[in-house]
C-alpha cells in the first residue's frame, strides 16, 4: 500500500506511538520522549530521534523499527536522523509512560531528580537517598542493589517490605 497524500506530523506521531521500545516493549518510542521532530523534506519523511544513552545498543534497532513501521504505513521515502542536542532527559517520559512502566514492574524516575542522579557521595555524607517506591507494593522502604541494571537506563533495587527485586528507571 502506498499512500496518496502526505500525512501530517500529528498522524505520523500517532503511528510512531505504535512502535514499541525494543527493551521495554510496554512503552512506545513516543512515550520515551526520544522522537524529537517529524517533518517533510521534499518527498522524504524525516524523523529526528535522540538516543537515551550514548552507547545504548537499542538505538540502531529503534531507528530500523521506525523506518520499517512508516514504510508499512505506506510512506515510500523515510529518513531517520539522530539528534544529540538537547540531550535526552527522563523528564521527557510522558505521564502515561510512567504509569505503564509501573504496571510493568519498573519504578519510573522520581520527579525532580533528573540531572541529580542521587549522588552516592551525598548519601555517604549522611544525606537522604532518593525514595524510590516499589512498583509492586508502593513501599518506599527500598534499597539500591546496583547502580546499573539490565539495560543502560535502569538501576537494580530491592523492596524491604515485599522483598521483591525490581528495576528503577534511573534519572538523567
Amino acid at each position: 500500500m502506498v499512500i496518496e497524500t502526505r500525512p501530517d506530523a500529528a498522524t505520523v506521531r500517532d503511528w510512531l506511538a505504535e512502535v514499541p521500545d525494543p527493551e521495554i516493549p510496554v512503552i512506545s518510542v513516543t512515550d520515551l520522549g526520544i522522537v524529537r521532530d517529524v517533518g517533510w523534506e521534499d518527498d522524504t519523511l524525516v524523523v529526528g530521534v535522540t538516543p537515551t544513552y550514548s552507547g545504548c545498543p537499542a538505538v540502531a534497532v529503534i531507528e530500523l523499527e521506525i523506518d520499517a513501521h512508516l514504510r508499512a504505513k505506506g510512506v515510500e521515502s523515510v529518513r531517520v536522523e539522530r539528534r544529540l542536542s538537547p540531550p535526552w532527559s527522563t523528564d521527557w517520559l510522558t505521564e502515561e509512560a510512567r504509569e505503564k512502566l509501573r504496571g510493568y514492574g519498573i519504578a519510573p524516575p522520581v520527579d525532580g531528580t533528573a540531572g541529580d542522579v542521587g549522588s552516592l557521595r551525598a548519601v555517604r555524607m549522611g544525606g537522604a537517598e532518593v525514595a524510590v517506591a516499589c512498583p509492586r507494593c508502593a513501599s518506599t522502604k527500598t534499597q539500591m542493589v546496583s547502580r546499573h541494571g539490565s539495560t543502560p537506563c535502569k538501576a537494580a533495587y530491592r523492596c524491604g517490605d515485599c522483598l521483591e527485586p525490581f528495576d528503577y528507571f534511573k534519572c538523567i
Binding site: 544513552y53 550514548s54 552507547g55 545504548c56 545498543p57 547502580r147 546499573h148 539490565s150 543502560p152
Partner: peptide, 9 residues
Amino acid sequence: IALANTALD
C-alpha cells in the same frame, strides 16, 4: 553488569 554498562557509555 556495571562495568559492561560503563564500557558501553
